[in-house]
Simulated scan of single mutants.
Amino acid sequence: MEHVTLPAAHPLASGQTTESPLVRAYQGERGDRLPVWFMRQAGRSLPEYRELRVGTRMLDACLDPALASEITLQPVRRHHVDAGIFFSDIVVPLKLIGVDVEIVPGRGPVFAQAVRTGADAAELVKIDPATLDSVIDPITDAVGRTVAELAHLGPDSSAVPLIGFAGAPFTLAAYLVEGGPSKDHIAARTLMHADPSAWRALMDWTADVSGRFLRAQVMAGASAAQLFDSWAGGLSLADYEEHVAPASARALSHVHEISYTVRTHDEGADPYRERRHVPLVHFGVGTGELLAAMRDVGADVVGVDYRIPLDEANRRLGGDVPLQGNIDPALLFAPWPVLESHVREVVARGRTAPAHVVNLGHGVAPETDPDVLTRVVELVHELGA
């Protein structure tokens, strides 16, 4: 991809988030504050979110800039986490470019037409992913509003960074082929092997859709980007490396060449400037056997789910990759002494890695007590002091 420099007013380029605990950890540095945020923290468990969402469908909320921004900000204000995660959904870019999809309450994304054959795939990829650029304004508007508000919500009124996100190509493609949620992704894995050329075309297409979606969020003000591969855990390592990894690398390439410069120290009248790129995180569910392959697609940070201890993940990754994770969401419902012990263990195991961002090993369950999340944040900050 063509190299792009962030605008001077961007939070990374201006220095607003450059020294934030999150960005420093994503770049492999340990500071005096252990950063923490939660996947699916935007909404779900918060009463203020449920009140705001009354009468509004999920995708309509995602495409309302004021609403999406407010939902993103709610958990930052309440929990004092070290990052906002942009409120959206992985199918939003598909919706924007004209794919007929709705999010059905209690079920998830459902497509009007499943992509089951090579002909189906050929028809879908006629939609040029570049058309996303002309309809992305609701997203960039929401990001801009959010970043402006996050500028004063950090410790000592510093800026809290925003993380942009998108669904990884395999997860998007699997949804498209299955027509909706699936437990085993049989149809997707069948197409992968039965018609490799159709599968490759579909994966290249979803990679460019997701990549452009990520890129737009970063250019609008996000200080990091995360690629979610929710369904990759259903793949063998061989299938991932051959049929999925190239597309994930292609998606991340849309952001990887975006850079900014920081002044690291002064030498007389001539400050020394260092060029850096926007941090990229890759997370998958049930992907303990794929961690190295997921790093190798171009990720700076690897998210680890709750199924594998962080010190073991660090060993598998060679000991030189910042990690994110991996509190078990189920333990948020356990008695506090049980949860506290678990959080302490996660933090201790995370110390084996070059840097660590504390998170859940999956997302916040809707029934989670928000006060428990706030208490976890306080504990993590105490442990990292």
Rank of each mutant, 00 (worst) to 15 (best):
M1Y: 06
E2T: 15
L6G: 09
P11L: 11
L12K: 05
L22N: 03
G28R: 06
G31M: 10
L34R: 03
F38R: 00
S45P: 04
E48K: 13
L52Q: 02
V54D: 15
A68K: 07
Q74H: 12
R77E: 12
H79I: 00
D89E: 14
V91T: 10
L94Q: 01
L94S: 05
V99H: 02
V99Y: 04
D100Y: 06
V104G: 01
V110Q: 11
Q113K: 07
A114M: 01
V115I: 15
T117C: 07
A119N: 06
D120T: 06
L124E: 02
D128P: 10
D128K: 13
P129T: 10
P129S: 11
P129V: 05
I136L: 03
I139E: 00
A142D: 02
V143T: 09
A151S: 14
G154S: 04
P155S: 15
A159N: 09
V160H: 03
L162E: 05
G164I: 01
G164F: 04
F165A: 01
T171S: 12
Y175I: 05
Y175T: 08
P181H: 05
P181F: 05
S182H: 01
S182K: 09
H185M: 15
R189T: 07
T190S: 14
L191D: 00
M192E: 10
R200P: 05
G211T: 09
R212D: 06
L214P: 03
R215G: 03
R215E: 12
V218W: 04
M219H: 08
A222T: 07
A225W: 03
Q226R: 02
F228A: 05
S230V: 08
A232I: 09
L235S: 06
L237E: 14
Y240W: 10
E241F: 04
E242P: 00
H243P: 07
A249V: 10
S253D: 14
E257T: 14
Y260S: 09
T261P: 09
R263M: 14
E267D: 14
Y272G: 13
R276A: 02
T287S: 15
D300L: 08
V301D: 11
D305I: 01
D305G: 03
I308E: 11
P309D: 07
L310F: 12
G325K: 04
G325M: 05
G325W: 03
V338G: 01
V338E: 14
E345F: 09
E345T: 15
P354W: 06
G361R: 09
H362C: 10
P370M: 14
V372I: 15
L373P: 01
A385W: 11
A385N: 13
